[in-house]
Amino acid sequence: MKLYHVVALVAGLVLASLLPLILPKYYTFIFAVTMCFAIYALGYSIILGRTGLLSFGHALYLGVAAYTVAFLMRPEMGAFRIFSMELLLIIAIGTSALVGLGVGAICIRYTRIFFGLINLGFVMLWHSLLLKLYYVTGGTDGLPIYIPSLFGVTFSHEIFRTFIFYYYVLGIFAITTYIMWRIYNSPLGLALKAIRENSVRAEFVGIPIGRYRLAAYVISAIYAGIGGALWAPLNGHVSPDVSTWLTSGDVVLMNILGGMYTFTGPIVGAFIFYNLKVQIMHFTTYWSFILGISAIIFVLLFPGGVMGWVSKVMPKLVKKSYRQKA
């Protein structure tokens, strides 16, 4: 890490910590949700930007984790009902990792569009299961999510959603971002980039590409799971809408908008995409139309994503490590 990284990081954390004190409560809530999606997008970047695999089905893991949380909170669980957010997170990480391992083992046998479509198939399968098994999943109505306790402390509904959980999410967001930063700068990160650039040659220099693709896939599934598990209590409710081809596509757009070859790109992309969506939804019911046009304009203006553009126009600030595809 260079000095300007540290400065930017500290400034960012201080600013993020102050936001709930300055902004209206509504925006604290919105930013907490945004960070959940940022974790989702950051995890996705290891499979898209690093390993070079385009998946159209990662909302599967968002849903697996969110429904895990919902199930564990149901009154039917009796004595096994869980309200501890830490425990819920750990179990949600476990289920998304497990599903990621199983589904990934099948998906990574294919690359390019086939990989994308098989993932899409799985998310559609999951989506229809959520709809049809309504006696378990609540069907289209979904399931309620109660307020979890944070480190054993239970907060009121309002404090939780508009204040305290924001900091909780911020903490997890910082930790997951740091871990991803370490992965990107590790030998594994280089091996994944090598697979992206030329999987044949990667195999011939001794990198077992299948295993590494699966590792990247499971990491992305875990990140999506963390995002989903944190998003669920914020939303207060989970329905099959969380796992659709649309929410799977959102994360692709976030990565492309922000710049999938840069480290910060997916995070910036998540912030732009989600907040743009929320703002446009205020104005018109035709929000998806406007959002689509905005996405097209963004891609035309910044072909390498917003952060890809930034790293080009600010070569002094963002040093040589970013000049090549990071």
């Binding site: 992965i183 700068n185 590790s186 590792a215």
Partner: peptide
């Protein structure tokens, strides 16, 4: 045999 190390710094 170090490509599988996810958290050490390559640099």
């Amino acid at each position: 045999g170090r490509t599988s190390k996810p958290f050490t710094s390559l640099d």
